[in-house]
Design a protein around this nucleic acid. Structure first.
Length: 426
RNA sequence: GGAGAGGUGGCAGAGUGGUCGAAUGCACUCGCUUGGAAAGCGAGCAGACCCCUAAAGGUCUCGGGAGUUCGAAUCUCCCCCUCUCCGCCA
């Protein structure tokens, strides 16, 4: 959520930001108008309440309270009427302001390039031209089904489209990847967490998933618990409504979790293979930092995710998302895209974002610089480190052999316990 | 799921209708003291919001919400959470 005080102080900046996001800026004037009305009403209410409180205190001090109460009752009743009248419009005004503000995305960082679509994302670095395999590379679904480690037909029988069954070496490779990612995160100073995979509406709201993305999430029938679309949600909200003591920051958390997404807006897109599933697995990295250190933190978080791809020896590139492609919560985002030879394309395998104070304001995550200092909002960052299913895809496609078998990346062998996946491998 | 107990400031813990936003202790901050430290002494120490040049002032918050009352941490109702016991279960 944007800072209402900033909107008051510098509406022009908010308008410019909206223009870069290619969203309307009409909300700026709407909010400002409502805000003026709300504050006027609030001031009146508070003044009348102060008068009333003074009279009430007078009764409390009186020798004969009953008599004093009787004497002042008409005056107090008159004030009550004025308070009620002035307060009448306030809940409506507050609700309108909240509703408008709740759907406004974060301000973009100055370094985010302007752009109209993902085609305008900027290449930051890559590993040179992607290596060519000496034979016709197959897509992972063909490799996986031939090896008996991916089974989409039976998954469809169990759950419908956009699900997969991993079997034998595929399941073990997936587990090994999770372990590898978590171990590396631990080595780099992240505290591992096993969070709830179902969270409350309030938690979902606090990290910016609601109300704008409610269509994207699975929830229980009462609608009170939501299946997390990423463990960014519980990790970021871990310190919701807290004031962190001096010396606490930065905090680094990592969690493995399944992630659940309806993919409602993706009909017909990525329908083959493991790329876009209703359920997938991910190891997430989350930072909470002081505001002035979040830019540097994004570089380090991204480097942590990149190190995993480097160690797996997978070709990838780093893209700086343009203004049209940066997500709702983020001020700036790097996507790591891994090369998939079977599909002759790069695909996102990690998205690393600096959400500045946007989620922290919704979540009320604050810190003190000194024991006596006023609380300030933290900055939150998150990134995948990495998406497990897509990493598995990348390994199958990049490490496939002409005979249909797949070599396990060297770094991963200690984690999975085998060096090659062959037909009917378990 | 059933029964009971309880939710007060960073922590502990008073407070059962009236100067209570809240005693006291601990922790913390600043100062005095000291060669330095401890102890001791003095002062300070919740958050949000409104108003505002500043100073000062005001409103709200004792799990959340609604109610009774001139006045609620304190009384009533609903909800949430925690703990104990029983049941069930991985």
């Amino acid at each position: 959520m944007l800072d209402l005080a900033l909107l008051r102080r510098d509406p022009e900046r908010v308008r410019r930001a909206a223009a870069r996001r290619m969203t309307g800026a009409g909300f700026v004037d709407e909010v400002l108008t409502l805000d003026v009305q709300l504050r006027a009403a609030r001031t009146t209410v508070e003044q009348r309440k102060a008068q009333k409180n003074a009279l009430t205190a007078q009764i409390g001090r009186a020798a004969d309270r009953a008599a004093e109460a009787g004497r002042l009752r008409p005056e107090i009743a008159a004030l009550d009427a004025q308070i009620a009248a002035a307060a009448d419009a306030m809940p409506g005004l507050e609700a309108q302001i909240d509703a408008l503000l709740a759907d406004v995305p974060n301000l973009l960082d100055d370094s985010v390039p302007d752009g109209a679509s993902e085609d305008d994302n900027v290449l930051v670095r890559d590993c040179g031209p992607p290596p060519e395999l000496p034979f016709a590379a197959k897509p992972h679904w063909e490799i996986g089904e031939a090896l008996g480690i991916l089974d989409f037909d039976r998954a469809a029988k169990l759950s419908g489209s956009r699900f997969a069954v991993l079997r034998g070496a595929g399941a073990r490779l997936s587990r090994g990847l999770i372990n590898f990612f978590l171990s590396r995160a631990h080595e780099r100073g992240y505290t591992e967490v096993v969070p709830p995979f179902l969270v409350s509406r309030a938690t979902m709201w606090s990290t910016g998933q609601l109300t704008k993305f409610s269509d994207a999430m699975f929830r229980d029938v009462d609608g009170e618990l939501f299946m997390i679309p990423t463990s960014e949600v519980p990790l970021t909200a871990l310190h919701r409504d807290e004031i962190l003591a001096p010396g606490t920051l930065p905090l680094h958390y990592t969690a493995y979790s399944p992630c659940f997404r309806k993919e409602a807006g993706a009909a017909g897109k990525d329908t083959r293979g493991l790329i876009r599933q209703h359920q997938f697995e991910k190891v997430e990295l989350v930072w909470l930092t002081e505001p002035e250190r979040s830019s540097e933190a994004l570089e380090r978080l991204t480097a942590d995710a990149e190190a995993l791809l480097q160690e797996l020896e997978l070709p990838y590139r780093v893209m700086l998302l343009c203004s049209a492609d940066v997500g709702f919560n983020a001020a700036m985002t790097y996507d790591l895209e891994v090369w998939l030879p079977g599909q002759q394309t790069y695909r996102e395998i990690s998205s690393c974002s600096n959400c500045t104070d946007f989620q922290a304001r919704r979540s009320q995550i604050r810190f003190r610089r000194e024991a006596t200092a006023k609380p300030e909002l933290v900055h939150t960052l998150n990134g995948s480190g990495l998406a497990v299913g897509r990493a598995l895809v990348a390994i199958l496609e990049n490490y496939q052999e002409a005979d249909g078998s797949v070599i396990v990346p060297r770094a991963l062998v200690p984690f999975v316990g085998f060096e090659r996946i062959s037909r009917n491998g378990d």
